[in-house]
């Protein structure tokens, strides 16, 4: 008989915690939904949800808030992966704002985000009457997230008040709410970017190919390497160049910076992150255009 081993690796501990959280949500809420952003964290979230409910199916739909500014590769990936997983995908956006041509170049990233993301999300949550909204945010990602609860209480307007959060002890999550209120749930709270990639490696999880280095068209602007999308406007003096780049996080193409990299596969990415001296958020245009902007956005209901 092989000796029994009673220790779990850090990754398996994190996995167990996340599964526990998702099962709690399934047991205690009426209308949960998983925010699906097509990125690496969402891919991990999806795998964890599959595990949590095996041999049954995931008992919640997925919700993607579309801004019409995602990379084309992301749309293709999203539709294929969700179909293969047999989950229900709901795609919603602020159609009026999209039709009106809302973009970050004319009104700034903060206003654009407010319309295309936050407003769209709040409307979608209200329309779906969701009482638990599972997101892939991690505390390590950003300073104001370090204080986020695993169960994050949102009032009837979907807003988050950092001063009015419930104390969270042990693994006892308080999911009780009044009608109209909701709980943002973050099963990946204790994961780091490196954990995500190590898990993707261990579990062979498929991710959008934009995470892997390739020669792509970019334009240098304000210290960032920005992708050149369908609607990107070049400023005077700017030129499109080709460079070996990859993305560390994926959002809307106008506001997502690339990093120069030769990491062609998951193993390369893990190796790259083990020695990197720069944080993941450095490539997000939205975070550092105003001090404390992430916290402001979160108060308003951003995920």
């Amino acid at each position: 008989m092989t000796a029994e081993n009673y220790s779990l690796s850090v990754l398996r501990q994190l996995e167990a915690e996340s599964i526990y959280i998702m099962r709690e949500v399934a047991a205690e809420f009426e209308r949960p939904v998983i925010m699906y952003s097509v990125g690496k964290d969402s891919s991990v979230l999806l795998r964890l949800a599959q595990k949590a409910f095996a041999p049954g199916r995931i008992p919640f739909p997925l919700l993607h808030i579309d801004t019409a500014f995602k990379f084309p590769e992301m749309y293709a990936f999203r539709d294929r992966v969700c179909a293969a997983a047999g989950v229900e995908l709901r795609v919603l956006g602020n159609d009026a704002a999209i039709a009106a041509g809302t973009n970050p170049w004319d009104i700034g990233t903060v206003n654009c985000c407010g319309l295309l993301k936050t407003k769209a999300l709040l409307d979608a949550l209200k329309a779906g009457a969701y009482d638990a909204v599972i997101g892939g945010a991690r505390r390590e990602e950003e300073r104001s997230r370090a204080k986020e609860r695993i169960y994050s209480f949102r009032d009837g307007h979907g807003q988050w008040d950092p001063r009015n959060q419930r104390p969270e002890l042990w693994n006892l999550y308080n999911g009780r709410i009044h009608p109209g209120e909701s709980i943002g749930v973050f099963p990946l709270s204790n994961w780091t970017e490196l954990d995500i990639w190590r898990y993707i490696a261990t579990e062979n999880i498929e991710v959008v190919p934009l995470y892997f280095a390739a020669e792509r068209e970019v334009v240098r602007r304000g210290g960032q390497l920005l992708p050149v999308g369908a609607k990107t406007r070049l400023l005077p003096g700017e030129a499109v160049e080709r460079a070996m780049i990859r993305y560390r996080s994926l959002g809307c193409y106008p506001c997502t910076g690339a990093v120069e990299s030769n990491a062609m596969n998951v193993g390369d990415i893990v190796a790259e992150l083990e020695i990197t001296r720069f944080s993941e958020r450095v490539t997000r245009v939205i975070d550092h255009d105003r001090d404390g902007s992430m916290e402001q956005k979160k108060r308003e209901g951003y995920f």
Partner: peptide
Amino acid sequence: MATMVATPREST
């Protein structure tokens, strides 16, 4: 028969 829970990579 009885197997290790962890894969070798995880139990080193």
